[in-house]
Simulated assay, not measured.
Amino acid sequence: MANTGDIHVKELNKRSSGQAFEIILTPSTPDAKGAFPLSPTKKKETSLDEIKKKLEAADERRRSHEAEVLKHLAEKREHDKEVIQKAIEEKCNFSKKVQEKMNQKMEANKENRTARMEALSEKFKEKDKKLEEARKNKEAMKEGEH
């Protein structure tokens, strides 16, 4: 094993493919060894109580998440109901306005028609009077000739 400062080289058994070496780097300070452990730290044994606590915490998180989702869905449903109710009200208001306008137009048309009919009736009465006067004049003229 050769030692050159911070590097140790250890020759391993010769192999058919060639030689093998293991290179070991030594820390420059003695307290630096703890900084990079060669094997991972072993987890401490978890007890049954700790496992139960973790399961309960996970279950509580799941229930809390489900409650949040249900709350969100309920709020969304309530919002949808409000939107639908508002749309129905607007439709009813629109229908009422259209109905009122239609009734006003129909009433105006009826009044206009009545006024036109009365005007025509008056005109025909005037013509009838003139025709009657013309007949009377014609008859009077015929009688005057005889």
Rank of each mutant, 00 (worst) to 15 (best):
Lys136Ile: 11
Lys53Leu: 06
Lys53Asn: 12
Gly144His: 11
Lys86Asn: 03
Leu55Met: 12
Lys43Asn: 08
Glu56Lys: 10
Gln85Tyr: 00
Glu75Trp: 00
Lys96Arg: 10
Lys86Met: 05
Leu38Glu: 01
Ala87Cys: 03
Pro40His: 08
Arg15Val: 08
Ile23Pro: 00
Thr46Lys: 08
Ser95Cys: 03
Thr46Trp: 02
Lys142Pro: 00
Leu55Trp: 02
Ala2Asp: 07
Asn93Val: 02
Lys96Ile: 13
Lys101Trp: 07
Glu50Met: 12
Glu133Leu: 09
Lys86Tyr: 02
Asn109Thr: 06
Glu118Ile: 07
Asn109Ser: 14
Lys52His: 12
Glu132Arg: 08
Pro40Leu: 09
Asp59Tyr: 11
Glu107Asn: 04
Gly18Arg: 02
Ala108Arg: 07
Arg113His: 04
Ala134Trp: 00
Arg77Trp: 01
Phe21Pro: 00
Glu50Lys: 13
Lys110Ser: 13
Glu66Val: 05
Ser17Asp: 12
Thr29Ser: 09
Asn93Asp: 07
Ser121Gly: 15
Arg62Glu: 06
Gly34Phe: 04
His79Met: 03
Asp6Ala: 13
Gly144Leu: 12
Glu118Met: 10
Thr46Leu: 01
Gly18Ser: 06
Asn109Asp: 08
Glu107Lys: 10
Lys96Met: 02
Gly34Ala: 09
Ile84Phe: 06
Asp128Leu: 04
Lys33Gln: 15
Glu11His: 12
Lys91Gly: 09
Asn3Thr: 08
Glu22Val: 06
Val9Ala: 08
Glu22Cys: 14
Ala2Asn: 10
Pro30Trp: 07
Lys136Asp: 13
Pro30Met: 13
Lys76Gln: 04
Gly144Lys: 05
Ala57Arg: 05
Ser64Trp: 01
Ile88Cys: 03
Asp128Cys: 03
Arg62Ser: 03
Asn112Tyr: 03
Glu82Gly: 11
Glu82Tyr: 00
Lys105Thr: 09
Lys71Gly: 03
Lys142Gln: 10
Gln19Pro: 00
Lys105Pro: 00
Phe94Trp: 09
Ala2His: 10
Gln104Ile: 08
Thr4Gly: 11
Asp128His: 04
Glu126Ile: 15
Pro40Ser: 04
Ser39Val: 15
Val69Asn: 00
Ser28Tyr: 07
Leu48Gly: 03
Lys130Gln: 06
